[in-house]
């Protein structure tokens, strides 16, 4: 899929609002049992085999993940829950190519991340992963449009093409009238929507979200979750979300639970 498909999706929605929603409706009803293979239907886009991740703290070795296996089908919307310190963020970091497992194989979006160098991982992330962070992580000195444009600066697109894509992404999140606003001039919910526009502007295969509603009030959280559902159903983005919030997890098609480094 390309960003063009986001544009196409947009046009399609304008013609028939119900069409895209009903197409993805079946997937939305499928709730996984949180164990083993998820049942969203498509081939796996994330395959983790015997993943372990440990950290050294002084002389002590802390085992965060221990022999974990996971498959995430393409096009699914998964929520990962679990108590603090259970290894959720570590798992998310490995899937997103921010961190490497100590042992085991991580194959994501067709690439084996365990064997990539730092530079290769950075390039891979820029092409395959969209990030949604708990505290939005917008660059405060750049406007909404410039923030959204950041991932496109790593491509060979012309300035005009980049501007077009930025406008499309901001239109998808309903903030086309806030392009020249700085993050401090936006509400929390709007900031997170700009961050989502930044996450989709490069048309990544997977969107990883780390507590995307953690810093938002209920109303804004609902808006953001609705937007994420739409990205999943309408634009067929695979979404892997870490959350503490049961209401947020409820919106995902698959819910998983991690405890003491292993999926329950």
């Amino acid at each position: 899929m390309t960003t063009g498909s986001i544009e196409a999706g947009e046009a399609k929605e304008a013609k028939s609002e119900g069409g895209a929603a009903s197409k993805a409706g079946a997937a939305a009803k499928e709730k996984g049992d949180g164990k083993g293979k998820a049942d969203a239907g498509g081939p796996s886009i994330v395959t983790l085999r015997k993943i372990s991740r440990s950290f050294q703290r002084g002389r002590e070795t802390i085992q965060v993940l221990d022999g974990l296996d996971l498959e995430v089908p393409a096009g699914s919307f998964e929520a990962l829950m679990g108590p603090s310190g259970s290894g959720k963020s570590t798992l998310l970091n490995i899937i997103a190519g921010l961190d490497r497992p100590t042992t085991g194989d991580a194959e994501v979006a067709g690439s084996n991340l365990s064997r990539m160098s730092d530079g290769e991982l950075a390039k891979w992330r820029s092409q395959n992963i969209g990030f949604i962070f708990q505290s939005f992580n917008l660059i405060p000195v750049l406007t909404a449009a410039q923030n959204v444009e950041l991932p496109l600066l790593l491509t060979h697109l012309s300035s005009d093409e980049r501007k077009k894509r930025v406008a499309t992404a901001l239109r998808v999140v309903g903030l086309e009238d806030r392009m020249e606003h700085y993050p401090r001039q936006l509400s929390g919910g709007q900031e997170q929507r700009v961050a989502i526009a930044r996450a989709i502007v490069n048309d990544p295969k997977i969107i990883v979200a780390d507590e995307p509603t953690g810093d938002l009030d209920r109303k804004s959280a609902d808006d953001v979750l609705t937007l994420m559902e739409r990205l999943n159903k309408e634009f067929h983005k695979t979404i892997f979300m870490v959350t503490h919030d049961p209401a947020a997890a409820e919106r995902a098609s698959v819910q998983r639970r991690l405890d003491k480094g292993a999926l329950q």
């Binding site: 950075a122 992330r125 405060p140």
Partner: peptide, 14 residues
């Protein structure tokens, strides 16, 4: 450091 981390996460090289 968080901004820099974000830029790195987005794919900007060292």
């Amino acid at each position: 450091s968080k901004e820099i981390g974000t830029l790195r996460a987005l794919g900007f090289s060292r």
